[in-house]
Amino acid sequence: MQPAAITESRNVMESAAFRLVGRALTCIRGGREIFADLGFSLSAGEALAVTGRNGAGKTSLLRLIGGLLKPAAGTIVLEGSPDESPPAEQAHYLGHRDALKPALSVAENLRFWHAFLGGERDSPPAALAAVGLDHIAHLPAGYLSAGQKRRLSMARLVAVRRPLWLLDEPTSALDTAGQALFATLMTDHLAKGGLIVAATHAPLGIATRELRIGGAA
């Protein structure tokens, strides 16, 4: 299935030049120091690939940026965001779990996040078409394969516009076609001035800068 191109950009993100800056971050979980004194900075249109061995704190870093964990020290700011709102409110988080309800249909799942997340949005059917799920929109999400569920989560990123994407192993469940599709979506997002922070083992298929944490593997 060929991904439908996302046309008609509403130029939300170009208006403000975003910059994500993390300074002197220390993360402690369960009394154990995961990483210390970590810094990074990311400008509009850039992608950052966070790499490191298992347990180095890749997921923790994403969750720190998303405000789901509190840093023991250090700050994270999204410069250029309106009203000094925290980065979490400007971010999409695509975690290991797909945040889908198996009892609801594909369209209902997407429509819920579309309505709940709010802000600048595209129509849900267009987003479903963009990830190639429009022909099964009426099926319960529980019937989908792991790869299809992943695509449905990706549709959320398309349907609701957020400048910052936090992706945790985004391509792990995807086949080659799915990975290519996701690369297209990410390229599109970056071209519109978006930012991407991705924790990953595998190459993402787009140009990235690398942040290696946890020292030598």
Partner: peptide, 11 residues
């Protein structure tokens, strides 16, 4: 299922 993370992060 991961929904709670998104609910906590939302506006």
């Amino acid at each position: 299922d991961g929904s709670l993370d998104l609910i906590v992060m939302s506006r």
